[in-house]
Design a protein around this nucleic acid. Sequence first.
DNA 1: CTTATTTGATAACAAATGTTATCGTCTACC
DNA 2: GGTAGACGATAACATTTGTTATCAAATAAG
Lengths: 192, 192
Amino acid sequence: MFNQFRNKFPFTDEKWNEYINCFNRIEVPAKTVLLEEGEISKKLFIIEKGCIRVWFNNNGKDLTSQFFFENQSVASIESFMKQFPSPVVVETIEPSVLWWISKKDVDKILEEIKEIPELRDRLINMLFQRTFDYMKHFFSFIKDSPTQRYLDLIKEKPQIVQRVPQHYIASYLGVSTVHLSRIKSKLVNKKD
Amino acid sequence: MFNQFRNKFPFTDEKWNEYINCFNRIEVPAKTVLLEEGEISKKLFIIEKGCIRVWFNNNGKDLTSQFFFENQSVASIESFMKQFPSPVVVETIEPSVLWWISKKDVDKILEEIKEIPELRDRLINMLFQRTFDYMKHFFSFIKDSPTQRYLDLIKEKPQIVQRVPQHYIASYLGVSTVHLSRIKSKLVNKKD
DNA sequence: CTTATTTGATAACAAATGTTATCGTCTACC
DNA sequence: GGTAGACGATAACATTTGTTATCAAATAAG
């Protein structure tokens, strides 16, 4: 699982192994809640196999804000970083194989590597990039119609359209499942 | 104009005056465009008197993303910081008295004060805060109805409701002017 | 293999929102 | 003081989207 990243980090083999050993492998079924709303996040997950969604409760309906797939790391960033109660739920969609690392170990590693400016910059960049992605998603709610958002999703994140059940996609696009069905059927008819 | 901030900065009088002298006072009528869409931002503005909106063109209709009032600083942050073409237009709403400072002078000052960690942190915090505000605004588009957004606006930013023409508020809330009128009239009737 | 659950499509109706047009008021400017 | 333009309210109608209900297909669990 981790060997593929080995050459990206300037650590001694000893350090590398020490860090790898902080991770714990688990297998969970579909629809496993990894972090409840209101809970304080203590674990960061990396996906070996499977798929996770992050959502929050909005007047009884769930609104999906992000999807994650293989090799991505997942947490309620605000809750994990600042140890606030999480505003979101983290939940598997498919049966998944995950590796988790505790907040304590992450802090320890971050402390140890903070002298390596190359890594620090990469980390800050990662956080920024995620923030930008988030912004872009929100932005599209204001700018684009649901139909346009769906077309963009097909183009830019085909994995989501292919692997995720449609009602989660509807909740990600901010429309009802019925309306997403309508959108799809209109698109098909337009092509004819 | 600047004396009110004097005690917030740990500079010698000499440095303070040098920095103050980087600012240029201008008076402009209402609806003056301070930064065009696509232009690279070279000036940061501080408002002594008046009111500014930042908006972008979305399929021919303008969509206001932010309002600024007295004592706030205004720029297309992305364009000013990274010298990209601006995605937004910066435009006065009322006749305004502004102070501007050039990108060059800002860079010079930032370079000089980067050794003062207190100031650096305050600056980073400011940027973060603005990003959070932005996020919060976007978020409300997904979570809340236009009516709810309008009620929140009255509560949290009464200045906007009081000073800004209604069609700009409609464009800020993401609804047509007609619909904002409807929302207002429904609210009035409900109170009776 | 059988059954329960999940998923997705569709219809019928309701509610929200946009569009266009008209009118009245207010304000800036000559 | 008169006039053009900006601003806001309202009506009538169109379009988009949500809601509820029903059915069919796919999938998972026993």
